[in-house]
Design a protein around this nucleic acid. Sequence first.
DNA 1: GGATGTCTTGGTAACGTTACCATAGCGAGC
DNA 2: GCTCGCTATGGTAACGTTACCAAGACATCC
Lengths: 344, 344
Amino acid sequence: MVGGARPRKQPTIKEVAQHAGVSPMTVSRTLAGGANVRPDLQEKVLSAVRELGYHRNENARSLRPGQASGLIGVAITNLGNPYYGNFALGVEEVAAETGRRIVLGNTGGDPARERQLVADFLGRQVEGLVLVPSGGSSDHLRPERLGDVPLVLASRRIYGLDVDVVLLDDVGGAYRGTLALLDAGHTRIGYLGNVSSEFTGARRYEGYLRALAERGIEPDSDLILREHAIGSAGEATGRLLDLEDPPTAIFSANNRNSIGALREIGRRLRSGARPDEMPALVSFDDFELAELMPVPVTVVDHDPRQLGREAAKLLLSRLGNGERHQGSARLVEMPVKLAPAPSP
Amino acid sequence: MVGGARPRKQPTIKEVAQHAGVSPMTVSRTLAGGANVRPDLQEKVLSAVRELGYHRNENARSLRPGQASGLIGVAITNLGNPYYGNFALGVEEVAAETGRRIVLGNTGGDPARERQLVADFLGRQVEGLVLVPSGGSSDHLRPERLGDVPLVLASRRIYGLDVDVVLLDDVGGAYRGTLALLDAGHTRIGYLGNVSSEFTGARRYEGYLRALAERGIEPDSDLILREHAIGSAGEATGRLLDLEDPPTAIFSANNRNSIGALREIGRRLRSGARPDEMPALVSFDDFELAELMPVPVTVVDHDPRQLGREAAKLLLSRLGNGERHQGSARLVEMPVKLAPAPSP
DNA sequence: GGATGTCTTGGTAACGTTACCATAGCGAGC
DNA sequence: GCTCGCTATGGTAACGTTACCAAGACATCC
């Protein structure tokens, strides 16, 4: 085993041709399906391919005019977050169904990094871009910069940019989640807001307000914590619970906030607080084992993978055939659903 | 806005050259750093680049001999799982630090899909491969198939394949987790096994057995459920709890099993079971809010992102400079740690 | 048998880029 | 003034691939 054959560089079509005793064109034709190539030659070619471990050089292939690269550029803010992981998975699946691959970049929410990634993707001749925007300037996404490469935005839209967008039904989900608390008899409902994404944060807040308004309840600014300055969701929850007239329920606009809130609630219960003093919780974003929590938790559930699939489908429809699909920008809102909540 | 400029195809270096009134070579040199190009021409070139929105065609660039593609192929089993999402993030980060990008494919654990992805990656001239193997034949990973493209395996190793591997310290983690239960006075410790990955499953089982052996406890086959035939972790937990002499603690070999076990425990508590009748749990794989669970949960915590970073570093070290790093295969085991456990 | 058509094969050029070579300009040194 | 050396610029070829064209082989049909 030791000192075995040196790794060889990838063989070219020329070498395969030589090995099979035919011209490169015959190899090319065979690999393209074998039309108008004698079966015996095809076999010779295919066994040469197997023997040498040959793979067509896709980069060289995509160089030829009219040949697409088969790459989709995907830039998301945090791959480690299961939400975006599933989103990327959805994009990957749909891309794979058409034989395409994704080049993936993590922006970490940094606009500079996003610009860099987009430039790199364009250099790699991606056929399209799927992007979870990081905020900041959107100059690098203007049509004259992207040329003929279509773009789909996800989770967040950029005003003034006329491109396809996929979003969750943030407003509807927050509305229905809040309404569920109101229907259960709660009238003092805290709002735990969104630091990470102002756009979805604003939309979810809108849903919360709409539900309150519908029941004629005036929003109480003491109960609404959506500032960036808040140290953590746990701390914010503590502030809500320490109010003179604390909320009996909390609407939490995202996963991170929900986890923080539950941690704080857990701390207080361990310190001797009575369970019926603790608020019920509605969480935008699902999380596991919600049913085992010490307070009733309702989740606004959604499917980020489906969101990714939808984004990819929008993108692919813009690639279509030769002539670009020229329809105007579309906005897709994916439905969310309330998971059955234990009564408060 | 409507009927605005048609999207143009990506400009070429030739068009930039024409626009700037120089030759393509001067453009190329300018973009390569500008050595031996008059400053005034450089400026002309750069403004033509900006004006046309030009990006170098990396595919064409990588066609030239000696030029690397800057792509790393990454194939994982399930991007939606935060474990693999974070793993991929780690690989992406390290790749990005050297200006490389990752092409990502999801195998879904399907060996055929894995073969297909690897072939595609090779066709795209990736500089290296990072793979979470799906099992099945490994013919497509033999050195003569990969040529000069280095491979790093993660989470699972393939015997007979002499390549770099990164693993968690599965044995040690399971050993220490089980030992913690023994130290807390448990003697009947159930084992909830791994369906998804036989390799890590076997290693974790080994750690469990080692801990028992060290304390002179004979493993009881009634307490050990690691068959594929088990319907679900919840059902398996039910079987353990329904034993005449049920375990007072359970070691669960992965996240999925832990969640299933906790769901079953939750069901029984809601049906009136007494909390002190329920087993303590040690879970290999962290999960959020473990501290809020109705039974004491200790987790064997680890950092999949770091695992990904390590995998990428091993890979990059094989790329090094011109001549391939020829050292023999390395095996890296990433440390895990026990999260502080509430006493049982 | 000759014209016509179909099938098979190979040569050539081009995709976008840059290493290499050639050339021109210019200042320094004798 | 002539060479030498250096800088700046451009032309050419090649990377691996395949569309297109040309040409040969062979069968078909009148």
